[in-house]
């Protein structure tokens, strides 16, 4: 066993040498697609370059990435991820108190980050992450039975992000001639719509990956 570990270490060290040598040869003056991405920014419907890449130039990647998240949730569910998190009936006074202060702040920050994405670093994923955190906090500080959520609303929430994104992508085809090409002058509004539904679905997906579906829906 010891010799195998040593052997692996030697091979890995060799890899490191090769990799470092290759990285050393990357041209440090090349600016990639920066010039092009910034030049097209006025046509992208947003003012922040990263948001433009995520939701316009390479929106298809973002669509797929939401599908990855959905796949993970469906996967966790299919593998039998606990039907319900064992909620602690006696949580002490601290958790609900903290939650009542933090939850409004988290939700407010999530909305702010979503709005910010148009011209600063921010957007649906940052916002979705905060929503997910808020959901987890709310779940942990809830009493059993505090979550009167119907199963179908969870399903709608899960798929709404990627289906609205996909439908927008398809419905613009007659107007702009291409999948996911926003017609002239509508990019800002469509991107905002997509970001809102994405943030919601992402938040819910993260919550479900943490807790499992049974924790948030009413037992039948």
């Amino acid at each position: 066993m010891k010799t195998i570990v040593n052997l692996v270490s030697v091979v890995v060290l060799l890899w490191l040498a090769v990799l470092a040598w290759a990285l050393w040869h990357i041209p440090l003056t090349d600016s990639g697609l920066q010039t092009l991405a910034l030049a097209e920014l006025p046509n992208s419907g947003v003012e922040h370059a990263v948001t433009a890449v995520l939701l316009n130039y390479r929106a298809y990647d973002t669509l797929l990435e939401v599908v990855v998240l959905l796949a993970a949730v469906l996967g966790a569910r299919a593998a039998g991820w606990p039907v319900a998190l064992p909620l602690n009936a006696d949580r002490g006074p601290l958790l609900p108190g903290v939650a009542s202060v933090l939850l409004p702040l988290l939700l407010l920050s999530a909305v702010y980050l979503l709005w910010l994405g148009k011209h600063e670093a921010g957007g649906s994923f940052q916002s979705g992450a905060l929503l997910g955190a808020a959901g987890i906090l709310a779940l942990l500080s809830a009493q059993p039975g505090d979550w009167p959520v119907r199963a179908w609303t969870v399903r709608v929430g899960l798929v709404i992000g990627f289906s609205i994104f996909l439908l927008v992508g398809v419905l613009v085809i007659p107007f702009s001639g291409t999948f996911l090409a926003y017609p002239f002058g509508t990019a800002t509004e469509l991107i905002l719509l997509i970001e809102i539904v994405l943030a919601f679905s992402i938040g819910l997906a993260l919550l479900l990956l943490f807790a499992g579906q049974g924790s948030v829906i009413d037992p039948p």
Binding site: L33, L36, A37, E40, N56, Y57, R58, A59, Y60, D61, S176, G177, T178, F179, L180, A181, Y182
Partner: peptide
């Protein structure tokens, strides 16, 4: 070749 988003290579997919 379909230019998704209408941006064309290299900026789009």
């Amino acid at each position: 070749r379909i230019e998704i988003g209408g941006w064309g290579a290299p900026l789009g997919i």
